[in-house]
């Protein structure tokens, strides 16, 4: 498939932005947590799940989405949020617990909501799938061609919410696409120890829907299958499952001792890094000049830097603001 240069450069720039964002977040998160790790200390307290290495899943489908399409995301949400176009300043401020944050500091990194671009996420495995199902239902009721995408991890494919939602999506022929990021581990448990089938796309058969599998964290392959799945959904041809084999370079959360895997595993994964591969691909296959890519990289870095600056310079919420926003 020939892909437009605009799409390719957007994907590259966005992957780069995500990587740079997560690397900076790892640093910010570590502040105040050395030499003794205390989860509640530092400018970014609480759990932190980073998506370093999982960029292809997010950009490969979000490139096909518009503002009116809905995205739900789980506890590891930054790459999806960035790819969906969530306000980066307010997202970062939310993660820093600031009053300028998306939720005025009430949500934090696992609970980011930006209704302007129809993005939400949450900390309960599998729970976002029904929300995307409902958005897909609303899209159909309103007679639009909007679609809903639920990102989940491979662990969530064993939740009841997954099976209930897929059955209903197919039953009602809704424009829902469930993207399963198989990063190989549910915290510490490898997929082979949790899942009865080799890949979750084959479960699509059980619901009478289309299933796709993307090997080797490949953004281009992800682009291709997502294009088909999104087009089918927009045309009213029903829901799909896409499973992408992806890599989790870091622990389940920052501070995870990762005793369950060989240290060498990540080194090998990083050797086939999707961002480096994509960069090479753009230069050799599409003749894009390296200078152009450097410009995109600098632009992405600049945007991330200014979001972190915005977050750090923003004010904390007033403590008594905790009592507001329960009811509208």
């Amino acid at each position: 498939m020939v892909i437009s240069v605009d799409h390719l450069t957007w994907m590259y720039e966005t992957m780069y932005k995500i990587r740079y964002y997560e690397d900076k977040m790892a640093e910010a998160y570590a502040e105040g947590k050395n030499p003794v790790f205390n989860i509640g200390a530092g400018p970014v307290p609480g759990e932190m799940h980073l998506a370093t290495g999982q960029e292809p899943a997010a950009v490969g489908i979000c490139v096909h989405l518009k503002k009116e399409d809905t995205v739900t995301s789980p506890h590891r949400p930054h790459h999806h949020a960035i790819a969906k176009g969530v306000d980066l300043n307010r997202m970062t401020a939310e993660i820093f617990g600031k009053v300028t944050g998306l939720g005025k500091g009430k949500g934090g990194h696992m609970h980011l909501f930006d209704p302007d671009v129809k993005f939400s996420c949450g900390g309960i495995v599998g729970a976002g799938i029904p929300h995307a199902l409902g958005a897909a239902l609303a899209a159909k009721k309103k007679g639009t061609d909007w679609v809903a995408v639920a990102f989940i991890g491979e662990g969530a494919a064993n939740q009841g919410a997954f099976h209930e939602s897929l059955n209903m999506a197919a039953l009602w022929n809704l424009p829902l696409i469930v993207v399963i990021e198989n990063n190989q581990y549910g915290i510490s448990v490898p997929k082979s120890a949790s899942t009865s089938v080799p890949s979750n796309d084959i479960r699509a058969v059980a619901y009478g829907m289309k299933g796709y599998y993307v090997k080797d964290n490949d953004p281009i392959e992800m682009y291709d299958v997502s294009k088909e799945a999104v087009e089918r959904a927009r045309k009213g041809e029903g829901p799909s499952i896409i499973e992408i084999e992806t890599y989790r370079y870091l622990g389940h959360f920052q501070g995870d001792p990762e005793l369950y895997r060989d240290k060498n595993e990540v080194t090998l994964l990083r050797e086939k890094d999707p961002i480096i591969r994509m960069r090479q691909f753009l230069i050799t296959e599409y003749g894009i000049e390296e200078q152009r890519l450097i410009e995109l990289e600098n632009k992405a870095k600049q945007e991330v830097e200014s979001a972190y600056q915005f977050a750090r310079e923003s004010d904390d919420p007033n403590p008594e603001d905790a009592l507001n926003d329960l009811f509208v």
Binding site: T70, T72, P115, K118, S120, A127, I129, P130, H131, A132, L133, G134, A135, A136, L137, A138, A139, K141, K142, A148, G160, A161, E164, S165, N167, M168, L171
Partner: peptide, 23 residues
């Protein structure tokens, strides 16, 4: 009428309400 799938249909009501429906 929904399947006997309370998690999915109550969750779907949440998703639809966020989109401006009043389920």
């Amino acid at each position: 009428d929904t399947p006997i799938s309370e998690t999915a249909f109550i969750g779907a009501a949440i998703g639809a309400a966020a989109e401006g429906m009043r389920p």
